[in-house]
């Protein structure tokens, strides 16, 4: 890992932790919410070295972190939202969103379209990861429920 990547993982953790405080998460849950942010960007950096496609990595990280959130929620007996919202904070494409706006303002349409498409790609990948994990959890829950009833 380069210095820059280490800095990103640390600041990503601080950012997630900050949001966890804003959402009034306390005690043990605060630590695991922050840890989620640390894991999400750490995993992304590692995956980037293996798979040279950021959108694919966004999808994978979103999926893994959603599963992490579901598991932590069950262990700590609290709603999943607590972990999913805070852990994925570092993945929000704030930077490319900003440059999309800036290029739109500068009438630089070629770069605007390029950045806009990139932002859309990343956020769809992020969304898709969450969706797949949520659907899978629902499926497993339903299976367990029917098993209990039989």
């Amino acid at each position: 890992m380069t210095n820059n990547e280490i800095l990103q993982v640390i600041t990503g953790f601080i950012g997630s932790m900050g949001f966890a405080v804003l959402y009034n998460i306390r005690g043990k849950r605060l630590i695991f919410a922050g840890l989620g942010g640390f894991l999400s960007w750490g995993l992304f950096v590692i995956l980037n070295k293996i798979i040279p496609n950021e959108a694919v990595n966004y999808f994978l990280v979103a999926f893994v972190i959603s599963v992490y959130a579901e598991i932590m929620a069950r262990i700590l007996k609290t709603p999943t939202t607590t972990f999913i919202t805070t852990s994925l904070i570092p993945l929000i494409p704030g930077s490319s969103l900003y440059y999309t706006m800036a290029y739109a303002f500068e009438n630089d349409f070629e770069r605007f379209l390029q950045k806009g498409a990139y932002t859309l790609q990343l956020s769809s990948a992020l969304a898709l990861g969450i969706i797949v994990a949520t659907t899978l959890t629902k499926l497993i829950n339903n299976l367990l429920n029917t098993k209990n009833k039989l």
């Binding site: 949001f19 939202t81 919202t85 929000i92 704030g94 969103l97 956020s123 969304a127 969450i130 969706i131």
Partner: peptide
């Protein structure tokens, strides 16, 4: 500052609602 204002949480919850 965009990162503090952006409705990331809103969108996450929106997706989870849509697909449950």
């Amino acid at each position: 500052n965009i990162m503090t204002l952006i409705p990331g949480v809103g969108l996450t919850n929106a997706l989870r609602d849509l697909f449950t």
